[in-house]
Nucleic acid binder design. Sequence first.
DNA 1: CATTGACCTTGCCATCGTGGGAAGGTGCAG
DNA 2: CTGCACCTTCCCACGATGGCAAGGTCAATG
Lengths: 146, 146
Amino acid sequence: MVTKALRPELAEARQQGLYNIGEASAATGVSAKMIRHYESAGLIPQASRTFAGYRLYADTDLHRLRFIKRSRNLGFSMKQIEALLALWSNKHRASSEVKRLAQAHAAALGEKIGEMQAMQRTLLELSQHCRGNQRPDCPILDDLAG
Amino acid sequence: MVTKALRPELAEARQQGLYNIGEASAATGVSAKMIRHYESAGLIPQASRTFAGYRLYADTDLHRLRFIKRSRNLGFSMKQIEALLALWSNKHRASSEVKRLAQAHAAALGEKIGEMQAMQRTLLELSQHCRGNQRPDCPILDDLAG
DNA sequence: CATTGACCTTGCCATCGTGGGAAGGTGCAG
DNA sequence: CTGCACCTTCCCACGATGGCAAGGTCAATG
């Protein structure tokens, strides 16, 4: 008397509190496309499947997906998120490790921000000197031309 | 009596003030790879060739490459540079058009800068609350976990 | 004149995160 | 039973750049 099939039907799986990929996507804000991508990249474990091959997700999977989503919102790369996930599930982690990752990423952001600000500053300076009328003379082009 | 072959030899071309791709790269700071890429993307015209198939560049080509390089340094995309180049070579351009492009790009940069600053701010705030020691408890991970 | 090393050619692959679309199977409601 | 919404896999695209491989060319040296 088997009460739980190895590969259940979808309806059966739903009764057990599992979600298919569309529901998981709606519940986490991660597109189905990206959920599959994260699986193939190893950020989330291989999803279990219904008999017909549909992926199934439990609440722990949704939790993991939300973790990934929040990390992406902070600009972490998939590689960095892989490390964060490993730390998250490692009960013997040192918080210094997490802090190091976060600060390194913050520093990298600062670097890029600085570069982009320099570009922006230059662009605005050049724009200030350009009349922006119907005439062709333009300090912006002059500068780009060297 | 033909003084200028349709497809000269390299030495002959050099005498006429032309450069091969390596020289053009060294003179402009654009890698040979990217010079070819810009050609295939239409940012620069198809280079003339020696009899053996080597690309040849004149000073005007170097000028154009430097224009592209400076534009890239300001963060313009290849598509935007295409537009800038068209304006550059259009003697009837309105400088307002150039100014509009530059300001739009500056605004886009500002947008991205703002997003990245928000990320950075959050990361630094979270880091401040993390002791960063050997213990596993970590507000950063707690936040990512939701 | 032959060899050699530096350089050129084209073409394909990789990055990184995301989306689009095609072709075919599944689930459910009317 | 039919139709629609959803699922599956697989391939392609973006943007800008680099790497590598296989093969041809040039110039200097022996």
